[in-house]
């Protein structure tokens, strides 16, 4: 399968400090990817690079096989975390800007998104709630009918109902047009129901990536005697009480004397996060 988005030894530095430090990953076309990591891990930087708003310091990033050239790829839609919109424009005027600035523009789709979210078209953007501004941002991004949609923390300001509706809408785009979707969040619970791929970013590096189902199948949570924890191979993260050790290991085998099962996605990600913190 071709990659919609891929990175190879990708580095981005700001004033000598590395925000991204040698990222490697590939997102296949049509996948729904969770870009997860703690605050400051580099998620927003990565999405801004993919949107063509930043240039890599070294290494490469490809969008549908091409390097971004200082403007957003015509097949890409992007919603930044700060939701850059003109506060004094009405929602309808905002859409008109979208139509003016984009060669491909699906006005009906954009209006449909806002209708569904019950965002009034005649309201001025600065009067809207954060959730409604997010919906305007998503409508603008979907108006481009993107083949790759990049959303930075799309669900963080939404109430549960709006969250469900937004996910339904996005999943509909994936079903209808085979759109590739990359969504970032510092909360895995926001995304894990709907994603089939994971990019786990910690401290500017990709610590874990791939199809979620494969990642789960490649790991085990082992519970067994603390005295023998040191003899287990492939340990990602360990915690133990006096007698009992709980280990997250990469590998499918369960050593004798241990109980093992596949981790949940949450346990897997938490294990890697804890391991990074302990280092």
């Amino acid at each position: 399968m071709d990659s919609a988005l891929s990175a190879h030894r990708l580095v981005k530095s700001y004033r000598g400090k590395r925000a991204l430090d040698g990222c490697e990953f590939a997102v296949p076309e049509g996948a729904v990817t969770a870009l997860v990591g703690p605050n400051g891990a580099g998620k927003s930087t990565l999405l801004a690079l993919a949107a063509g708003l930043l240039k890599p310091s070294s290494g490469e990033l490809r969008v549908f096989g091409e390097r971004p050239t200082g403007r957003t790829h015509p097949q890409v839609g992007y919603l930044a975390q700060n939701r850059p919109l003109y506060g004094r424009l009405t929602v309808a005027e905002t859409l008109r800007l979208g139509r003016a600035f984009n060669q491909r523009w699906a006005q009906r789709r954009a209006v449909q998104v806002l209708d569904q979210a019950e965002v009034p078209l005649d309201a001025r953007v600065h009067t809207l709630s954060e959730g409604a501004r997010t919906q305007v941002g998503i409508a603008l991004a979907l108006g481009r009918e993107p083949d790759l949609l990049l959303l930075d923390e799309p669900l963080s300001a939404l109430d549960p109902l709006a969250r469900d509706e937004t996910l339904r809408l996005l999943m509909g785009e994936v079903a209808d047009r085979g759109m590739t979707l990359v969504m970032s969040s510092h909360l895995l619970s926001d995304l894990h129901d709907v994603c089939d791929h994971l990019v786990l970013l910690i401290g500017g590096a990709v610590r874990l990536t791939g199809p979620i189902e494969d990642l789960l199948a490649e790991h085990r949570v082992l519970v067994g005697p603390a005295s023998r924890a040191a003899s287990v191979d492939g340990v990602v993260q360990a915690s133990s009480t006096e007698r009992q050790a709980t280990l997250l290991v990469r590998g499918e085998s369960v050593p004798e004397g241990w109980a093992g099962e596949q981790p949940t996605l949450e346990a897997l990600v938490l294990g890697y996060l804890r391991a990074a913190r302990a280092r």
């Binding site: 049509g30 996948a31 729904v32 469900d164 339904r168 999943m171 509909g172 994936v174 089939d196």
Partner: peptide
């Protein structure tokens, strides 16, 4: 049901 119909009803990933 088509993937589209399932998605409309339950907000799951159509790939699933």
């Amino acid at each position: 049901p088509t993937a589209r119909e399932v998605v409309e009803a339950t907000a799951v990933n159509p790939n699933t």
